[in-house]
Amino acid sequence: MIMDRRSVLAGLAGVGATFAVAGGVRAQTAGTLAEIKKRGTLRVGVTQAPPWYSKDPKTGEWNSGLGVSMGKAMAAVLGVKFEPVEVTWGTAIAALQGNKIDLMYMLDATPERAAAVDFPQNPLLFYSMAVLARDDLAVKTWQDLNKPDVRIAVPQASSMDKFLTETVGNAAIQRFPGNPEAIAAFQAGRVDAVCLFHPPLLAARQRLGAGKIVVPLPAQSQPSSVALRKEDDKAFLTWVDTTINGYYTSGQTQRWYEEFLRGFGLDPKSAPPVMKEMLK
């Protein structure tokens, strides 16, 4: 079939219009922030790990912990409901990528994670790595644990796991799905120590009534962060960055932390603060 120049131009214009419409649809695809407001919930990844997240065993509700308090506050600012979604430290990234959750607090911004998810520029808080060890286990430095006969429990695929693998690789490192399983192994005597960041160990020591908490030298203090799904629309990332920075600089993050400690029967003065400006 023979087509004249006018027909060809008209056809190309039609194709161009089609691509323009398609491009417009793509451009209008809602980002996470818009989806949250449309859905009416902020989905926060949670895992049993006091003082960050704590579920009431009687009601099954996630009702305490710094991450729960912050999640509820951020949901309220957005005018939506707080929706906790159970994950593990090892499955949180996949949950974000699979659009099962909108964010996860207390995930450190490692290079490996940053390749898969986004992190805000401002830190969430600061904390130190520690161990809950048998009372008779001599621990002053990390090298004291770097022995084949020392059994250490750690949550799998966590920052602690990576650090132990690189620093005390000679130890018998046993990896568990999450904090509760690692702590249970210590309680049962299957390991000599459990490595977590200092705050969760305070709650564990309080509950178990046994063992000693040590911050081995050289002390490993670092910032923690919030993981979010990677997307072209950066509105949610920008909002989270601004919001957590506001909570931190106003002292609200520290107050939520201390609130949990008091509710758990611990004196906040016995624990290192989560603000680096307050560290001595």
Rank of each mutant, 00 (worst) to 15 (best):
N122S: 14
A73K: 12
G71T: 06
A235G: 04
I101M: 08
A172P: 01
A109W: 02
V194W: 03
D102H: 11
A116S: 14
P272C: 04
T110S: 15
T243S: 07
M1Y: 09
S250T: 15
G209D: 11
R151K: 15
D241I: 00
A271F: 06
F197L: 08
G98C: 05
H198Q: 12
V21C: 08
H198S: 15
I173G: 03
A184N: 13
S250K: 09
K280W: 01
R151C: 07
K58G: 11
K140M: 01
Q143D: 15
K37Y: 00
E277N: 13
G67D: 12
E231K: 02
R229A: 12
R262A: 09
M129E: 07
C195F: 06
G24F: 01
Q252C: 04
E181P: 02
V226L: 03
A10Y: 07
A109G: 11
V150H: 03
E258Y: 05
L66W: 04
N179V: 14
A130G: 12
L42W: 03
K72I: 08
L145A: 14
G16L: 12
G23E: 10
N245V: 00
V274G: 11
V191C: 10
L125C: 04
P216T: 08
Q187I: 08
M160F: 02
K81D: 15
P177L: 09
K72P: 06
A210L: 11
S64D: 14
G67L: 00
E83K: 09
V168W: 00
P273N: 09
G24R: 07
L266C: 01
I36T: 01
L107A: 07
L202P: 01
A92E: 11
G24C: 10
K81Y: 01
T242E: 10
T242Y: 00
L137E: 03
A235Q: 10
K58L: 10
R262K: 15
P50K: 06
K55T: 10
R43Q: 13
G67S: 11
S270Q: 13
R262P: 05
L132C: 09
G45Y: 10
T242S: 14
R151E: 01
T41W: 00
P123I: 08
T141W: 00
V150R: 05
P123L: 05
Q174C: 04
S270K: 13
Q187V: 13
Q206E: 12
Q220A: 13
L261S: 03
A153G: 15
A114L: 04
D4I: 05
M278A: 15
D136E: 12
D161N: 11
M160C: 10
R205Q: 15
L9G: 15
T29S: 12
T91K: 10
R43H: 04
L96C: 09
V15A: 15
G11E: 07
S69M: 12
L12M: 14
